[in-house]
Design a protein around this nucleic acid. Structure first.
Length: 289
DNA sequence: CTTCTTGTTACTGA
DNA sequence: ATCAGTAACAAGAA
């Protein structure tokens, strides 16, 4: 479940590896994942390269090196992975060392798109559940898409004032609000639960009933949890892998997500699970009021 | 076999 | 028109 910290980790890594590498061939094994015209998609990428990779919410934006500028948009949805594999390295002097084989660094049954670069390195798009999407857009369409996203934790527009406005203007539960990408971009089910536990706020509480002190705590917790998660290179609960094919370690710091029925790490009471906005929600009935 | 998992969207009903 | 809640999508785990 790649959320903001996971997508941010992938973005930062790929910006180190794949910029300005010429694409030799893009192999597509499941065309329905491509949400723009398939031949246009291939044609635009052929001999092209990535100038810079950006992120908005959970969406990855690969700025391409062509005129007029176009963008490859990749959404990982639930089980999408982007794994970069450099070519085998031949050691100077004529003898080649055995290459360290990374299990994740080869095509598997879920490798539905493979970006092959001219230097023999590859970028794999793997997706077990095939919910992920790839498309190419121009800057007009990109702006259209970006404009629908809400404010972003870690960006300048994420202020206590702005968050208070949003929270006061909605009657939905605070959990549903945190999950709504049109209001706040990048938070998914894992971090919504973790942020609300850290804030000591009951997830079912209607947003517009929250007191200023609670809103302030949610503001601070959002920044704290997301920064910590990025430091840990994300949470690998099931499928998430970073661009090296490695797991994120934030699972060790999870306080509530996935801990239904276990003891609250703060008060030893049993954590409960309910459903909000169709999503499982784990919380501590004692700590979160 | 059933139930559960989640990001996003389309749909439903108030 | 607005808003909120939910089914659906896919495919695997338990």
């Amino acid at each position: 479940m790649p959320e903001l910290p996971e997508v941010e980790t992938i973005k930062k890594d790929l910006n180190k590896f794949v910029l300005h590498k010429t694409l030799k061939q893009v192999q597509i094994f499941l065309p329905r994942l491509i949400k723009s015209n398939l031949s246009q998609f291939k044609k635009t990428l052929h001999h092209n390269s990535f100038k810079k990779i950006h992120r908005v919410g959970k969406l990855l934006i690969f700025e391409l090196n062509n005129k007029p500028t176009r963008f490859l948009l990749i959404h990982l949805k639930m089980t999408g992975q982007l794994i970069y594999c450099s070519q085998n390295i031949l050691i100077a002097g004529g003898h080649s060392e055995p290459t360290i084989t990374n299990e994740t660094c080869k095509k598997n049954k879920y490798s539905y798109v493979i970006f092959n670069f001219t230097d023999a390195s590859k970028l794999f798009f793997n997706d077990m559940r095939t919910f992920g999407t790839l498309k190419i857009v121009d800057s007009l369409e990109l702006n259209n898409i970006i404009s629908k996203y809400g404010i972003e934790p870690l960006q300048k527009n994420f202020t206590l004032h702005k968050l208070t406005q949003i929270i006061n203007n909605h009657r939905i539960s605070i959990k549903a609000l945190l999950l709504n990408q049109n209001l706040i971009a990048g938070i998914g089910n894992i971090y919504a639960d973790e942020i609300l536990f850290n804030s000591k706020v009951m997830p079912t509480k209607p947003a517009n009933n929250l007191k200023n002190a609670e809103i302030k705590k949610i503001f601070q917790s959002s920044l704290f949890i997301i920064k910590q998660a990025i430091k840990a290179r994300g949470t690998t609960f099931n499928n998430y892998l970073d661009a090296h094919g490695k797991k994120g370690s934030y699972i060790q710091q999870l306080k509530v997500y996935g801990r239904n029925g276990q003891k609250c790490l703060n008060c030893n009471n049993k954590l409960l699970k309910i459903k909000i906005a169709g999503r499982s929600t784990v919380y501590c009935p004692h700590c979160q009021q």
